[in-house]
């Protein structure tokens, strides 16, 4: 599998109060640019919690769908850019504009 470097743009960001998360994963599927994943670690309640990857738009979808008041949402005046190594299937998916990015 070949990989390439892409630049991911983050127009926003979030904070995550991992201690109050109950691991329902609603935020994961709610995030439109798909930049949240669940941790492998667990919090003191024994729940996995979300973690943020580059590409947040600051859209607040995670906050709106989280039943446990875990998120704060921020916007950058100038987007931050992050260079990431991805395999080619990622680039293909993005190019096709398809909503799901399943490997």
């Amino acid at each position: 599998m070949t990989t390439s470097t892409v630049t991911i743009k983050s127009r926003g960001s979030i904070t995550i109060d991992t201690a109050t998360c109950k691991g329902c994963e609603l935020c994961i599927t709610a995030c439109p640019p798909e930049v949240l994943s669940m941790s492998t670690a667990v919090n003191h309640l024994g729940y996995h919690y979300p973690q943020l990857h580059p590409g947040c738009t600051g859209c607040s979808a995670c906050l709106f769908i989280c039943p446990d008041f875990v998120f704060e949402i921020f916007k950058f005046d100038t987007p931050t850019l992050t260079e990431v190594q991805v395999d080619d299937s990622f680039a293909t998916t993005v190019a096709a504009g398809v909503g799901e990015m399943n490997a």
């Binding site: 979030i14 995550i16 991992t18 995030c31 798909e34 994943s37 973690q51 990857h53 580059p54 916007k75």
Partner: peptide, 18 residues
């Protein structure tokens, strides 16, 4: 499940400049 790419970012504190 979505498959985000790139590193896990620090979300414990407010991001500077936002």
């Amino acid at each position: 499940q979505p498959q985000p790419v790139g590193p896990v970012l620090d979300t414990s504190v407010a991001p500077p400049g936002a």
